[in-house]
Amino acid sequence: MAQPILGHGNLQPASAAGLASLELDSSLDQYVQIRIFKIIVIGDSNVGKTCLTFRFCGGTFPDKTEATIGVDFREKTVEIEGEKIKVQVWDTAGQERFRKSMVEHYYRNVHAVVFVYDVTKMTSFTNLKMWIQECNGHAVPPLVPKVLVGNKCDLREQIQVPSNLALKFADAHNMLLFETSAKDPKESQNVESIFMCLACRLKAQKSLLYRDAERQQGKVQKLEFPQEANSKTSCPC
């Protein structure tokens, strides 16, 4: 079976046209793959994990979000340098009791981890240590990119976590720091750039799951791809 090679221009977006041509021409060279990029979002209760993921995947700030129970899933297809990548975002419950036995399943094969804290709530920041332990406990490899997101920046007068403190923490743990607001429409680009930045890094760096666009009996093959490309990206970061 012909396998696409990363970074050599063989990959094509899974457009309707692409699929149609597949039907006409069964040549396996035309194999269309969409890479899947899996991100897990973790952090204390009520720091805004759900809103952030909504903002990224849906574009808007939901005015009524509720406590997340267990794990929610959202996805968005983004295009980076002409390649379509499916970004899967796993939004998790913040309450401690859900972490232990419930969420572990969703740490498997993650490509990146987003840690979220609330800039107006110091405990959500100090608890990050525990979240990092939690993450390590689930055997997330050290090379998996991690970013730190301070949310609710629009509440300027209530800020408890100074940027320099957060930056120090991020540096110490080899993470990029973003301060943003899922609520503020002006910040929506910033929210997007968090996930896009991760997507870019991953596109450039790691093996991603490939989704075979040619579906056979509704089944989709998953292929692990070796790291191959280290193409220069035109990413914002």
Binding site: I36, K38, V71, D72, F73, E75, Q88, R211, R215, G218, K219, V220, K222
Partner: peptide, 16 residues
């Protein structure tokens, strides 16, 4: 469910 892609994300998303 059976029409769905056979992967965790798709099935989880559909059912939830």
């Amino acid at each position: 469910v059976l029409d769905c892609d056979c992967d965790m994300a798709s099935v989880h998303h559909l059912l939830s």
